[in-house]
């Protein structure tokens, strides 16, 4: 059944700024998360170089048999990663509109947020979790 698993945000330098699970998931150790996030960041950059057409984006979607990884790279260099159940619909769109807009509103507009620093925003957290869990509930997935 379609499910949103978790959201990760990677900064302009490849550092993990934020991660949040929307359902009960086996925990990943924090240091491993940092390593995975920066590896993904690097791979996205390299993948663009494989393109026969100049100015290509990097990886936008990676599919595995147990999950999809939607990756959205903003023009300002921030990378949003959304892990979902395979073939969860509208995930790419959710990332580009809802999640990006929440990030603009509650992270960037907070005057005390430092650019490219770890995101510690309760408002962002609340709103993000609320939206994503509401979507999960619609698909019959409890928290």
């Amino acid at each position: 059944m379609p499910t949103l698993y978790s959201l990760w945000i990677v900064g302009r330098n490849g550092g993990l700024l934020y991660s949040r699970d929307f359902v009960q998931l086996p925990p990943i150790e924090f240091n491993d998360k940092l390593r995975l996030a920066s590896s993904w960041f690097g791979m996205c950059g390299i993948s663009a170089q494989l393109s026969p057409v100049p100015d290509s984006s990097g990886i936008q979607l990676m599919q595995a048999d147990t999950f999809d990884l939607h990756s959205f790279h903003t023009l300002t260099g921030t990378t949003f990663m959304l892990l979902t159940e395979p073939h969860t619909p509208d995930a790419a769109e959710l990332l580009r509109t809802t999640v990006y807009e929440l990030y603009c509103d509650y992270v960037l507009k907070n005057p005390f947020h430092e650019m490219d620093q770890v995101i510690k925003s309760e408002l962002f957290d609340q709103n993000l979790v609320e939206r994503c869990q509401a979507i999960n509930r619609r698909w019959g997935v409890g928290a």
Binding site: D55, L75, T76, R96, Y100, E101, Y103, C104, K109, M115
Partner: peptide, 16 residues
């Protein structure tokens, strides 16, 4: 400006 640009990109759906 550094912060506003993302809002601009998110809401206007501007491409590169």
């Amino acid at each position: 400006g550094q912060r506003l640009i993302d809002e601009f990109l998110a809401k206007s759906k501007t491409q590169r």
